[in-house]
Design a binder for these strands. Structure first.
Ligand SMILES: [Mn+2]
Ligand SMILES: [Mn+2]
Ligand SMILES: [Zn+2]
Ligand SMILES: [Zn+2]
Lengths: 140, 140
DNA sequence: TTACTCTTTTGTAATGATTACAAATTTATA
DNA sequence: TATAAATTTGTAATCATTACAAAAGAGTAA
């Protein structure tokens, strides 16, 4: 679960990001949802609020956010890149029926023997299947 | 580790795949390497052997293999789709220095509480960082 | 204020991986 | 053999992402 951020501007500044309107709104939107939206979703959600917003800006901003470590890129399907403002280690479940991506907590696990001499910068765990909701609907 | 396949034709047939030359060679190549190659790598590796090979066939064949469950698609970077003939559950480490993707075994882990009512069809675990080899070179 | 510089945003064009599609080839069937 | 079905192939289209340069915005110093 993403910890509540009290001061968005400070949060960006502390990550070395100058908080422009576009950057603030993009991050605010990402932090407000647990839907792991795509670039198109983000752009669509903000374009009425910022009518001049360019999709290029969304791409640039997300790339900057990732470089500064305040978002994660979620690659589950090869034709669908999603984004997450929660950078803590947690799992993702993608439902192949409804297409939704949701979080789940990952149980403690020890060090991975094979990688003791490796530097680790990112860990990702994701599962694909059918969510409880879709199972109900299918079995109707 | 991918189990040794004694009879490639039978292996494909048992998976519901008619073993054409192209399909046999593509699967044989995938099963022979632990490099998790891309479409371009696969195509490049086979095109001298099958000079008429089309890249479309590589795409079609890999899609068929996945549908029939004999390969996994590895999505780590959003601009680099890789393939794996080892469909057992194992982890992948991608080195951000040399670009290589290697396997590692995943320690036992219990059921994930949050997903007890979900149907699970695929599990993926991957880690990004710097491999032991690249660490040595960097610290020279 | 103006003049200047630096940063950010924007729109358009280019890129490149993947897919769609239909013709050509191969394989199976009668 | 003739015919039908499956597979492969080459080309064109699609679409997400990136490159690029112009426009807009923010900061600084007279
Ligand atoms: Mn998440
Ligand atoms: Mn593997
Ligand atoms: Zn669902
Ligand atoms: Zn390496």
């Amino acid at each position: 679960m993403l910890k509540k951020i009290d001061n968005l501007e400070k949060y960006l500044r502390d990550a070395g990001i100058k908080p422009s309107i576009q950057r603030l709104k993009i991050f605010e939107y990402l932090a407000s949802t647990n839907s792991h939206p795509t670039v198109d979703k983000i752009y669509g959600a903000l374009s009425s609020d910022i009518p001049t917003l360019s999709k290029t800006t969304v791409y640039n901003t997300l790339k900057l956010f990732q470089k500064q470590g305040i978002i994660l890129i979620i690659n589950i399907e090869d034709n669908e890149t999603r984004f997450d403002a929660d950078v803590s280690f947690h799992g993702h479940f993608k439902c192949i029926e409804c297409g939704g991506v949701e979080d789940f907590p990952i149980p403690e696990h020890g060090k991975i023997e094979a990688l003791v001499d490796y530097d680790i910068s990112e860990k990702h765990f994701y599962i694909k299947g059918i969510c409880a909701n879709c199972k109900k609907i299918i079995n109707k």
